[in-house]
Structure formats: C-alpha cells, structure tokens
Design a protein around this nucleic acid. Sequence first.
DNA 1: CGCTATGTTGATCCATATCAATAAGTGTGG
DNA 2: CCACACTTATTGATATGGATCAACATAGCG
Lengths: 232, 232
Amino acid sequence: MRVSDIPKIRSLMLFKDMDEDSFSELTRAAYVQDFPPQVDLILEGDRCDFLHIMIDGSLELFAEWNRHETALTILRSGATFILAAVVRDAPNLMSARTLEKSRVIMIPAEDVREIFQKDHEFARAVVMELAYCYRGVVKGVKSLKLRTSIERLANYLLKWQKKTGGSDSFTLGIEKRRLASILGMTPENLSRAIKTLRPYGVEIDGQNVKITDPDALKGLAKPSPLIDDPRS
Amino acid sequence: MRVSDIPKIRSLMLFKDMDEDSFSELTRAAYVQDFPPQVDLILEGDRCDFLHIMIDGSLELFAEWNRHETALTILRSGATFILAAVVRDAPNLMSARTLEKSRVIMIPAEDVREIFQKDHEFARAVVMELAYCYRGVVKGVKSLKLRTSIERLANYLLKWQKKTGGSDSFTLGIEKRRLASILGMTPENLSRAIKTLRPYGVEIDGQNVKITDPDALKGLAKPSPLIDDPRS
DNA sequence: CGCTATGTTGATCCATATCAATAAGTGTGG
DNA sequence: CCACACTTATTGATATGGATCAACATAGCG
C-alpha cells in the first residue's frame, strides 16, 4: 500500500470515524491492487478472504445460473463489496469484474472481523454500510417487480442525471448491454425502449443522453423516493 | 411484556449472546403486542420508531407503486423486520401486514441504537442479521432475473419441502395469491404453472402439496446453493 | 485498415398479464 | 345450520411485454 493512498482511504465512509490505532492496524494488513479492465476479481461461490473497497475505476457485480448471466449493480469509487459475505464468513453470492482500470483495497476478512470487535465506530460504520446495501437491493427488487422495463429505464435516466450533476445533457457511463442487464432486459429491448422514450424528450446518441422534457419523462417514470432516492 | 415471553425472546439469534444487563435494558424498554390477521403494522414511507421481532404468527412485507402491490417476503416466528431502517434512522421501504394472529416484540429504535454501542455481542448479532437479510434479498433478485416463473415455483416448492421437514407431502402454508406475488407472477399464472409441474411429479390440491418425483422436479428446478440455500 | 465486439432493426416466438366467466371456499348473520 | 355475500382459485380467450433469432451497421481496437 502506498502512503499516498492513505488519505483517500481514510476519508471513506467506512473508515472516517474509526480511531487511529484501528485504522493503522487495518491499513497495515491491507493490500492495494490495480487491475486492468475485464478482470474477474471474485467468483460467486468462492470463499471471501478479503473485504474489497473500490478507490478508483468501476466494476460490475454479476451472477450466473443455468448458462445465463445478469448484472446486479455497478460499483464505483468508494463502494465496498462482499461485506456481507465477509461478515458471515460465507461464500460470495456474486462475481465481480472490472469494467475500467481499477484500484481496489483488499483487507483480510479476519482483520475486518477483529477490528469490528474492538472499534465501536468501525462497527457502527459497517452496520450503516450493510443497511445501506440492503436497502439498495430492496429498492432494486421493488423496481423489478412493480415496473415495466421502459419505466425502469426512465427512472434510471432521471436518477443518473441527478447523480451526474443535473444537467440536461450527460453521459451514460456504461455500455448499453450492461445497462440492459442491470435493468433486467436484453440489449435489443433496451434499444427499442430508448426509441419509445423519444416522444418523452429523451435523445440518446451513443453514450450521450439529452433530456429535453424532464416533466414528460417524470410523468412516465413516476419516480418514488422509496425506490429511486439513492440516499436514505 | 409478560415474563413468560422472556425466555423465548432471549433464545432468538439477535439476543442470545448479549450480556444480561443489556438484555434486561432492552426488554424493559420493549413492548409485546398481539395482532389479529390482516392488520397493517407498518407503512412504507413512515419513519420507523421500533425494531420489530416476530415471536408468533406470520406476516408479509410488501410494497406499492403506481397502484400495484407486490409481496417481498413472508416472515415467521423469530424473524426481525425493518432492522435496516432502524439502523439508518430512515423511512421504511416496505409495509408489513399480519397474515395470521401474530405476536410481535417492538423495541424502540433509540434503545436498539444505544445498546448497539454498548454491547459488542449485540452489535455482532445485528451485523450478522443484517448481512443475512441482505443475502436473502440478493438471492431473490438472482431468482427473479435469471429464472422463469415456473422455475421459481419449482425451486420454491423444493425449498419449502426441505424447510418443513422433507416429507414428500407438505402444506403450502400461505394463500396461493400471496405465493404468486412473492414469486413475481399473477395468481392466474401460478395456477397454470402448477399444472405445468404436474408431469414433474407435483400434485397440489388446495394447500396440500405432494412431490412424487423429486428428481424430475430438481431436473427442472436446477436448484443452486447460491440462490436457494436459506442458510449461509 | 481490417477484425471483433457492440448496437440497431426487423420478424417472430414465447412467457406472462389482462380480461372475463365460473367454481369453490370462507365467513357472517339470520 | 343454512343461505348469502364475498373472497379466492381455476380456466379460457386474448393482448402485450419482452426474448430470441437473424441481418446488418457501427464503433473500438490492435
């Protein structure tokens, strides 16, 4: 681990309130590694020996069954993954693969569990993080079960617009086929869904999105804070 | 709270390793309440003032959007709910309604958060429970996105058979329309899915299920420990 | 510059929802 | 205890969302 990484790590949700001793104990044990795009970091079914934390780049969590694959989420800088598996010392339910060149901190699961016992603030942060992840997945299920694919796409666009600063022009940031998988549809279907949204003021060219009539789009999407609000 | 409830509560995962002082502090603050069937205990969007724990009966967690409703899960004796919302002091993402006459412990959210800070073992149990819930939802998403409704039903039957003791005859335990909602389909479709499974040795009459050819059913269901194993 | 992966479009098929009618339970009050 | 109302389950007919297959276009990338 490079010294230059430390401040960035320290500022992450999970670590920012923990005491200095515990933090240096964790970082002493931790590795930082860089990966090129398209690398599988973990495989579903494997034991998880390390808690992973993204400090740069992006990756997708995905799962397979019966020769089919689906993406569950995209993670970016600051996100933790397989925390739940580490906590329960259980096999990973998802695989992870880098999408871009990525830098990842890996903390031995043993050390995480140990520090958890010693440091109240860290324990609190772990619980907050887990609860946050849980709520994220619950929102995802609600979206899947209650909405059509077009509604999911519309809400995704509105959410992503907000996350990228709110301008009416922004960029998708991921390949469409991955977006399709995240949203629970095929790439072909996503293409058609995009066309369907054109009358609602959505122009998508490659990765570039422009939302010219937000009200029309919102009218279709009917966003709800209990599904689409990333905070809370 | 009745004294007779205490041993039962103490034996629950969440409390069984915590120290005696913290436990009596929690139970002093807690209420136990009985509810008839079909009562809404919590409403999505509401602030959650209490952690809830089932000690008898059953209920469903469900959510609504745009005039549609879907059931996310059924909870029975021993299950906690809205732990994540309590931890984060955030609005509930799901509503809860009793299905049978049910007995529920309600612990003020404040006290939960307070004891969490004081008692390591309790903190550990909370994290384990949250991680367990998280993994449960992830398995649910995988099932929804990777399987057809018939495959989901087949796996549900196998899982439920195991949970009820493994006999080839068992009872569903819930109304079919709720099962349909849990599995992400309409009641009409569930009826048809059941008929589709008949050639695979599945006989369902009312709530009574008989699985006469488990291998055939497993051949269709292709159960995976990473989706269908309730433990870990 | 050509190869390969990605995206688009069209045609068709399949799974699932919807609508409608009936049957079978379930509970309630007379 | 039965008759009635109401909810739940089943079945059939049909509509629709979404998947699949195939062809082609396009964009990255070596």
